[in-house]
Nucleic acid binder design. Sequence first.
DNA 1: ACGATGATGAAC
DNA 2: TTCATCATCGTA
Length: 186
Amino acid sequence: MSNTRMLMEMRTVLEKEFFERPAPAVAPELLGMYLVRRSGATEHAYMITEVEAYEGYDDRASHASKGKTARTAVMFGPPGRWYVYLVYGMHEMLNVVTGADGHPAAVLIRGVEGIEGPGRLTKRLGITRAENTLPATKATGLWIEDRGVRIAPHQIQKTPRIGVAYAGEWAHKPWRFVLDKSSSRR
DNA sequence: ACGATGATGAAC
DNA sequence: TTCATCATCGTA
């Protein structure tokens, strides 16, 4: 079997260790990975194209900055679990918990190939708070796969996070990472 | 530019 | 128990 063929067929479910790092390190590496959804017999995979990092207690844009509560408890738990919450009374937001157990951090998945916007994404894939706290590292209902796509640094656009103007200095951190289609060829 | 729509956290 | 706020989106 050729090397190329092996790469093309590579399908590795991301493990807990992948997520056991600071969110700003994990987030850009999720670009090019595949969000995989199984509903009954059908399975769909979507390449991740837009993410945001929320890191630690001090990040005022993060829900964790208010401390551990019923909602945010999962952020304080082990890495590699889903954190799904409702915002504006109608949109479910999909996050993966990162960092060591006890350290609150997560990456918000804001977009995948063909679906722009965190609310649209969860609606299209049928993701709700029912997924909250479930592992993102088991190939059951919803998980993330490495399918061999490698993203070069010049294809990643860094910007401040969206919708966090209330967060003071933290609003300026360049912790939103977008896969830039126009720079995908060199 | 604005309203929808309900959970959350903090104040009372 | 009430209140302001919210990691957004569709319609105007």
